[in-house]
Design a protein around this nucleic acid. Structure first.
Length: 442
DNA sequence: ATCTCTTGACTCAATGTATC
DNA sequence: GATACATTGAGTCAAGAGAT
């Protein structure tokens, strides 16, 4: 029997309107399979079930993205893509500051925080806040950025555009729009974008044979300054942690980021946007948090008192940052505040930094009194104050015997495995003994 | 899970500073 | 000016941390 003949015979079987539920309905059915005709042998019904694509059954239940998310389908020479749009007025408050307040904070040396001189002129009005949602973390050529969230100040509003690929085929159109937007901004603001979003997008641009300036743009990546300031203040420095613990914000209907790839795969398969629309919310929140965080970093660096850091560790980190940037007086103020607000564990480190800051700014008596205070601690952590006092007595007061006593104390508290430290202490002691003898012989 | 840079600890060399 | 010591910077390595 040839194929034509077989088709003819199949078509001659009278058509029966399917009485069984759709695959979706069936999945929730309590009815045993056998009674639903699974083993019944009705060929037409079985063929219907096999041949009809799932989407035909589901069609009436599909809610496209255009119906769930405010935005529009954009036509480009590369095809269509979807763009969600939302605007926030200047008085919109996110965290402690309004958007206008964030814009009004005087410029601070972002180039020092990121070690990129091009950020000297950073201006949030010329910056594009960028965050992508992707089909995975691996970042290889198989990973798509199916959503690119872009935030920018426009007039007295903050606008968020989200380029969304309704299908993989819409990537070219999305990238062409992205390329245009990138061309009209001078700076990029991201969170870990330097090692994630930017390389990923660059790969996508290359694969679609497009040139892009994304890699060359000065990037104010908030992760690094955040770590510098808040490392140790919270359990980690993830964006969501900073959002909750630092900015005091709570998300209402968020999706965990690890769900995002599978939500997108489901969306592409079914075309139903009911679950994926929460990813728009997730991405929008990430962008707004970046703005608030950028403002916070801006403020805390420009005016620590106004930013009111709550924890000692924040003041301590800030102090080290100021010290590194050569702002010694601000650093000392931060260390002093940190000392009043931290536990014993941190206080030891703060006292080390503060005493050294006193020493290097010529406030030797203040330094000495701190080292002496450290010597009174019941659980000394290291020989730092002993060694510093030994130097002080040797070079400032020329009291070699006292200096030797401090070296001995340092030796007593240095664990035996720290051989180099011990060797240095012994060398110091030898030198002091010589000096002492020289003095005695004079 | 994957990737890759930053950070901190450590060492060594160069430079700066104080003292005789 | 010579010397000794302190400080700073550069280089190396391993571990940690963030993105979906």
């Amino acid at each position: 029997m040839d194929l034509k003949e077989r088709l003819k015979r199949l078509n001659s079987i009278p058509k029966i309107t399917p009485t069984h539920p759709s695959p979706i309905e069936a999945s929730g059915s309590e009815e045993p399979l056998a009674r639903r005709g699974e083993g019944g042998g009705d060929l037409r019904e079985r063929l219907n079930r096999i041949l009809q694509p799932e989407k035909v059954y589901r069609k009436r239940e599909i809610l496209p993205i255009e119906k769930l998310v405010e935005g529009q389908v954009i036509s480009t020479s590369e095809g269509e893509t979807f763009r969600a749009e939302e605007s926030f007025p200047s008085h919109f408050r996110y965290g402690e500051m309004t958007l206008t307040e964030i814009l009004d904070i005087p410029a601070y040396p972002a180039h020092l925080l990121l070690r990129d001189d091009r950020l000297r002129e950073l201006d949030f009005r010329k910056a594009l806040f960028l965050d992508t949602e992707t089909t995975g973390l691996s970042g290889g050529t198989g990973t798509f950025a199916f959503m690119v969230g872009l935030g920018f100040f426009q007039g007295d509003q903050f606008v968020v555009h989200q380029l969304f690929m309704r299908d993989y085929s819409e990537e070219k159109a999305s990238l062409s729009i992205l390329q245009e937007i990138l061309d009209s901004y001078q700076f990029l603001v991201t969170f870990n974008g330097r090692h994630y979003d930017i390389p990923l997008l660059e790969t996508r641009f290359i694969l679609s044979r497009r040139s892009s300036k994304i890699r060359e743009m000065p990037n104010f990546d908030l992760l690094y300054p955040s770590r510098k300031i808040w490392k140790g203040a919270f359990e980690n420095c993830r964006l969501v942690t900073l959002e909750t613990r630092l900015l005091g914000m709570e998300r209402e209907d968020d999706v965990p980021s690890e769900w995002i790839p599978s939500l997108y795969f489901d969306y592409v398969k079914t075309g139903d946007a009911r679950k994926i629309h929460r990813v728009f919310y997730h991405n929008r929140m990430d962008i707004l948090t970046m703005v608030a965080l950028a403002g916070r970093i801006h403020l805390i660096y420009h005016d620590p008192q106004a930013a009111r850091p709550r924890k000692g560790v924040e003041h301590f980190s800030l102090g080290r940052l100021f010290w590194d940037h050569g702002n010694r007086e601000k650093a000392i103020t931060c260390f002093e505040t940190a000392l009043n607000r931290c536990d014993d564990e941190l206080a030891w480190e703060v006292m080390k930094w503060l005493s050294m800051a006193f020493k290097r700014t010529g406030r030797n008596e203040k330094a000495r009194s701190l080292w002496e205070e450290m010597m009174e601690w019941p659980h000394k952590r290291d020989g730092h104050p002993c060694i510093e006092l030994a130097k002080y007595y040797e070079h400032r007061l020329k009291e070699f015997e006292k200096a030797i006593a401090f070296v001995d104390q340092a030796l007593a508290m240095t664990p035996s495995h720290r051989e180099r430290e011990i060797a240095l202490l012994l060398e110091r002691k030898q030198r002091l003994l010589k000096k002492k003898d020289g003095n005695a012989n004079r």
